[in-house]
């Protein structure tokens, strides 16, 4: 009897090890461990055994049963795992195929530049002021110390609609309008972006319509050193910490003193190249201390108040920053051009 049990165990374990799938394994389970299985059969003969041997034999039978059950369980685990592996292998995809495109557009490069500048100055306490693109001669010229007959306001340079109404030639009228609204009380701290228009034939460096962004600060005790410090922050933010700046005296009717700001040329590192015309410097913007006539005309006491203003062209900045070689690209809206500005460094 004992031998028969051992035989059964060996036989079952043998079969388990060669079972090919779960079904065969289940058949083995049923045939060996089921109620009608051979072990049960063997145990039926237990009655013939002595009282001493009966428990021993019972224990052996259980041992055999457990060993077969354990064998089946282990084998089942293996087979299940193999089945999963097979399924996964069949589900393999080519991950190098392209993904389903997500539709995206992006900012126009000029908006990108303008918003970058707006945000920088908002962070320094400025608000964004806007004004009409069709302006009165008064705000575009007279209020900015450009009286009638001044050579800098030649009819040839502006698009007039009537004698008194024209397309603004700069965003400075927004400054005049904002100061007027403040009724002689500071502080004024604004940044004014917008479209402006001049009578130019469109070519690689000229456009009859272009953008400008100007800043204005008026308060008691605004100093030229404040202008310099402000512009330095701007230049480093826009063009990188390693750029040097210099202020050069210049002339604008609405500021006195007037300056132009240059930044050191990135291309040649200041040694001189064709981009900077050999000077090592690139002109970025015009600025200055607000002319007392401009303050007075807008209702500010020029004895008490001083201010600074600066203005620049987003096209020029974009051209320098991104190496764009033709101003017309900004207005043609070729998608091959626009798309390039979806990348954010």
């Amino acid at each position: 009897m004992q031998e028969r049990l051992k035989e059964l165990q060996t036989e079952a374990l043998e079969k388990i090890s060669t079972a090919a799938d779960l079904k065969e394994l289940n058949d083995i389970r049923v045939s060996y461990l089921g109620k009608k299985g051979p072990i049960t059969e063997v145990l039926k003969g237990m009655g013939k055994l002595s009282a001493e041997e009966r428990p021993k034999m019972g224990a052996l039978a259980n041992e055999v049963r457990d060993s077969i059950a354990a064998g089946i369980e282990e084998k089942q685990k293996h087979l299940e795992e193999a089945a999963v592996q097979e399924k996964l292998a069949a589900e393999k995809i080519d991950v190098t195929l392209p993904g389903r495109p997500v539709k995206t557009g992006n900012h126009h490069p000029l908006t990108r530049i303008i918003e970058e500048i707006e945000d920088l100055f908002i962070g320094m306490g400025y608000t964004v002021a806007e004004g009409p693109e069709v302006e009165k001669d008064y705000y575009n010229f007279e209020a900015l110390n450009l009286p009638k007959g001044h050579p800098a306001r030649d009819m040839q340079d502006s698009f007039y609609i009537t004698e008194d109404i024209l397309l603004r030639t700069h965003t400075s009228p927004v400054q005049a309008r904002t100061m007027e609204k403040h009724e002689g009380k500071g502080p004024v701290k604004i940044i004014c972006p917008g479209k402006v228009y001049r009578r130019d034939n469109d070519d690689a460096t000229h456009s009859h319509q272009f953008m400008q962004i100007e800043g204005l600060v008026v308060d008691e005790n605004i100093r030229m050193t404040d202008l310099k410090g402000t512009l330095e922050i701007f230049a480093k933010k826009m063009f990188g910490d390693d750029r040097e700046i210099r202020l050069r005296p210049s002339f604008f009717p609405f500021t006195e003193p007037s300056v132009e700001m240059d930044i050191s040329c990135k291309i040649c590192g200041g040694k001189g190249c064709s981009v900077c015309k050999g000077t090592g410097w690139i002109e970025i913007l015009g600025a200055g201390m607000v002319h007392p006539n401009v303050l007075e005309m807008a209702g500010f006491d020029s004895k008490k108040y001083t201010g600074f203003a600066f203005g620049m062209g987003p096209e020029r900045i974009a051209m320098l920053k991104y190496g764009v070689d033709d101003i017309r690209h900004f207005y043609t809206n070729d998608v091959r051009f626009l798309k390039q500005f979806s990348v954010h460094e």
Binding site: E118, F121, I122, G123, M124, G125, Y126, T127, V128, E130, P187, K189, V217, D219, E220, N221, I222, R223, M224, T225, D226, K228, G229, T230, E232, I233, R246, L247, R248, P249, V259
Partner: peptide, 22 residues
């Protein structure tokens, strides 16, 4: 102008912001 210091405006300052419209 190279010899000028670099400073920032001092005095009353309100936080900068965009208008609701902007």
């Amino acid at each position: 102008y190279d010899n000028l210091a670099s400073t920032l405006p001092v005095g009353s300052s309100a936080p900068g912001h965009l208008s609701q419209y902007q």
